[in-house]
Amino acid sequence: GLEHMADEEKLPPGWEKRMERSSGRVYYFNHITNASQWERPSG
């Protein structure tokens, strides 16, 4: 619901949600550090 939507907005600075086109899996990418990970970043 709306709570989940708001929660997605609160990623740490630099992080954004991305989708891997080949598999459709969602991952997280940090455009500041060029880091990427499957787990939702905390902090």
Rank of each mutant, 00 (worst) to 15 (best):
M5L: 13
D7R: 07
K17F: 03
M5N: 12
Q37T: 04
T33V: 03
N30M: 01
E3T: 13
A35M: 14
W15I: 00
G43W: 15
L11V: 09
F29I: 05
S42H: 10
Y27S: 01
K17M: 12
R25F: 04
A6D: 14
H31P: 08
Y28E: 01
N34W: 05
G14Y: 07
E9K: 07
Y27F: 08
F29V: 05
R18P: 00
K10R: 12
Y28W: 05
E9H: 08
V26T: 08
E20Y: 07
R25Q: 06
S22D: 11
Y27N: 02
A6R: 10
I32S: 06
E16W: 03
R25V: 05
S22Q: 11
E16M: 06
M5Y: 11
M5H: 11
S42G: 10
E20R: 04
P13E: 09
D7V: 10
E3N: 11
T33D: 04
M19I: 15
P13F: 11
W15N: 00
L11N: 02
W38Y: 14
E8L: 06
N34V: 03
G14V: 02
R18F: 06
F29W: 08
S23P: 01
R40M: 07
E39F: 05
S22A: 12
N34M: 11
R21W: 08
E3W: 00
G14P: 09
H4L: 14
R40W: 08
T33E: 04
K10I: 11
W38Q: 06
S42Q: 10
N34T: 06
P13Y: 12
E8D: 13
G1N: 11
Y28V: 00
M19G: 02
P12R: 01
N34Y: 06
K17H: 04
P13K: 07
H4M: 14
L2Q: 13
M19T: 14
G1F: 13
H31M: 11
G1Y: 12
E16Q: 09
P41Q: 00
T33G: 01
N30K: 00
N30V: 01
G43L: 14
T33I: 05
N30G: 01
L2E: 14
M19Q: 09
E8W: 01
R18E: 01
E3C: 11
H31G: 06
L2F: 14
R25I: 06
S23Y: 03
P41R: 00
G24W: 01
I32D: 09
H4R: 11
F29A: 01
T33N: 05
M5V: 12
G24P: 01
G1S: 11
H31D: 05
T33H: 04
L2T: 13
S23H: 04
M5F: 13
G43N: 13
I32R: 05
R21L: 15
P12E: 03
K10Q: 13
R25P: 02
S22R: 11
L11S: 01
H31S: 14
W38V: 07
E3M: 06
G24I: 01
W38N: 07
N30E: 02
A35Y: 07
P41H: 00
N34S: 08
R18M: 08
P41I: 02
E9R: 07
L2H: 12
N34D: 05
E8G: 09
E39Y: 06
P12N: 01
V26N: 05
L2D: 11
F29R: 02
F29P: 02
V26R: 03
R25K: 13
S36E: 09
K10Y: 12
D7I: 10
Y27V: 03
T33W: 04
R21E: 15
K17N: 02
